[in-house]
């Protein structure tokens, strides 16, 4: 009887408040499992800013900071500069990182902060009820884009990983998805490498994880996974943008 899978001790025993089928839960598990497998759960200090995943500070079984909207990379910088031997990470949504917090993530990368950022991109504002995010796709409807995002009105969606990968201090940048088990396994590898980037003191690491929002996309959890695969992946290609080498 070998255990193939059981709940990670990197998670607390609280039930997650996320909507049924929301893939935040999967990403929480991956972060928790990676911290346990790397043996750093006891050294980890996470930063959860405003967004659906702010309550990650209750779900991840390590020291956590709740941060103001968009400011997690700055808070994490403060933590890491005081505790360089600890493992510091941020867990941020797209409304947080790609909108109000763009300066903070760009400058954390620019300074080569030795922190790890998990960037969950579900192309919408979840917590506040489905407003358009900078990552909302062209034509995708949202409560503040009732006719669908129109490039002429507010531009094309922001490609964060491509942008961050141009910054030298960002030593590991990869975009992954969690829409099926195979991709979840790949996502976990990338998240592990992003934490290892910090452990080796290389510099800033960011993993962009494409994620679903069944409730605000107005889809069933299963259809949401299909929508992600058919619409998000073509615009947000899953690939590694920086793997410790030089900026391409």
């Amino acid at each position: 009887m070998t255990v193939v899978y059981k709940k990670s001790e990197g998670l607390t025993d609280l039930q997650l408040h996320y909507c049924p089928g929301c893939t935040h839960g999967i990403i929480h598990k991956l972060v928790a499992e990676v911290m346990v497998e790397l043996g750093v759960l006891g050294d980890a200090i996470g930063v959860a800013p405003v967004g659906c995943s702010v309550l990650a500070y209750n779900y991840l079984n390590c020291d956590m900071h709740e941060a103001a909207h968009g400011r997690a990379p700055a808070v994490a910088t403060g933590v890491k500069r005081v505790r360089p031997e600890n493992v510091v990470f941020t867990y941020q949504g797209d409304g947080d990182l790609a909108s109000i917090g763009t300066a903070e993530v760009v400058h954390a990368a620019h300074r080569g902060e030795k922190i790890t950022t998990i960037f969950v991109n579900n192309a919408i504002y979840g917590m506040t009820g489905g407003q358009m995010a900078p990552t909302t796709l062209i034509g995708q409807k949202a409560t503040t884009a009732p006719y669908g995002r129109d490039e002429a009105h507010c531009g094309k969606p922001l490609k964060i990983s491509e942008m961050i990968a141009t910054i030298d201090g960002a030593k590991f940048v990869e975009r992954v998805s969690v829409h099926n088990p195979a991709n979840i396994r790949k996502a976990k590898k990338a998240i592990k490498k992003a934490f290892e980037c910090q452990l080796k003191g290389e510099g800033f690491a960011l993993v962009e994880v494409l994620s679903t929002c069944p409730t605000n996309w107005g889809k069933t959890p299963i259809d949401a996974l299909k929508w992600l695969e058919e619409n998000m992946i073509p615009y947000y290609p899953l690939k590694n943008f920086r793997n410790f080498g030089e900026v391409k």
């Binding site: 039930q15 997650l16 839960g25 088990p181």
Partner: peptide, 13 residues
């Protein structure tokens, strides 16, 4: 179990 967002499932071989 890998796919479950809420760690509902445990699997043993």
């Amino acid at each position: 179990a890998i796919m479950c967002p809420d760690s509902v499932i445990e699997v043993e071989r």
